[in-house]
Structure formats: structure tokens, C-alpha cells
Amino acid sequence: MRSVRRATVAAALLLAGLFGIAAAQESVPPPKQEWSFGGVFGTYDLAAAQRGFQIYSEVCSNCHSMRLMYYRDLSGIGLNEAQIKAVAASVQVPVGLNDQGEPVNGPGTPASRFKSPFPNDLAARAANNGALPPDLSLIVNAREGGADYVYGILTGYQDPPENFKLQEGMNYNEYFPGHQIAMPRPLQDGQVEFAGGAPNATADEAHDVVTFLAWTSNPELVERKQMGIRAVLFLTLMTGLTYAVKRKIWAEVH
């Protein structure tokens, strides 16, 4: 398993090197983390993803939308139907028009999209000092470095080095390109209390919420990898079979 992962990484690196996919970045590359969903056999750590959803709900969702997610999708991190209904019903979402033709809000259903903190991008900018908090649905796929990068951002807040000119309203982050990020440090030690008392230092919280964000970016990952293992095994078998038949057929020619 280790060697398979290494081979995959090596092949990917080779290709990336050949074709220069790994575009040059001026910022510090974030350190590699161990992820439950990494590697050929990786699956999501559902408990971590559920804690991550709690962090998203309590912290991130105050500024960041998650347009592509529906409450029904939460079955993918192990919530049952009753839990999903309860989560959905706890938010007020637009439910259409009333008899007077005015838009009305009502409790969400499993078919509702995740509630956005702002009605539109302009409102989001206005409330955030002109910066638009990006939608988080695909954030892990949408950043060079993926999960490691997002983890790096969440844990990379520091005091700026001497001589560094930090602009008004900006924050210093080790791993953000250019180091000046508009988002204030979102996670603090002990900020989110988990039921069951799971560890909640900044690093733990970041790890959990990145697991959740990786899942929202790639909800098909587990099914994909499991199908992939079967497909590759089957094709390897077929390669052996066709090669054997080829040898037999060509035996009389050579």
C-alpha cells in the first residue's frame, strides 16, 4: 500500500515536473499533513468531518457561503435523516413567494441549499471591508496545494516579521501568497466545544474543518477510489488474459 502510494506520487510528480503543472509560487509551500482521505485506500474520517461541519456552522459560515451543498448531502458524512432534518430546520431559507407575491423565508428542508451568510456578493463585500469571502464548496480543489494549503492558511497566522509593511485591515499569514490576507484568524484554541470532548486546539480544529472541506470538494472520493481499485484489478487481469491469448496465437508465427 505504501509503495503503491509512493508510485502514484512519483508518477504524478514526474508528470507535474515534465509538464510544469506545479506552477511556480512565490509563497512558502505549506507542510504536508496526514489526511484520512489521502492515498489509494483513503476514506474520510467521518467523525472528523462531522466536527468539521460543526466548525463550519459555528465559525466559517458567518462569512463564507457554500452554494453547491445541500443539507441532504450531509448523509455523506454519516448524519441520519432525522439529524439532517433537524439541521436543515434550524435555519431560515427562502422558500418561495407568499400569497401576496412577496419572497418569504421558512425553515429549511433536506432539499435546501446551505444557507448563505449574505444575499449576494456585493453585500458580502460590503460587510467584509471590500474583500469577498470565497465560496467554500470547492475550496480544497480550487487552491494549489489542496488540503495542505487550506490547513496551512488556517494555522499560518503569525506576527509579521520586522520591516514587513502590513496594510490597514490585513493580517499576516505564513502560507498566503504575498502573506497579506484579509481574513482575520478564524480559529483559536478551544474555540469550538465538541460533544464528547474531542481535542480542540487550533491545529485539531483546522484538521477537522479541512477534512469537512475536502469532503464538500470531493464527495465522490470514497466511491471513486473503491471503484478504481476494482477497475484496475479487473484491467490487470484482462491484460494478463489477453497477453496469454496473444502469446498462444502468435506462437506459430515466431
Binding site: 479487473f234 487481469l237 484482462m238 488474459l241 489477453t242 496469454a244 491469448v245 498462444k248
Partner: peptide
């Protein structure tokens, strides 16, 4: 062998 291969395919 052929039969197995064709079935596999």
C-alpha cells in the same frame, strides 16, 4: 483462454 478472455471483455 479465448473463451475466458471474451467473457471478461
Amino acid at each position: 483462454l479465448k473463451l475466458v478472455t471474451i467473457s471478461g471483455a
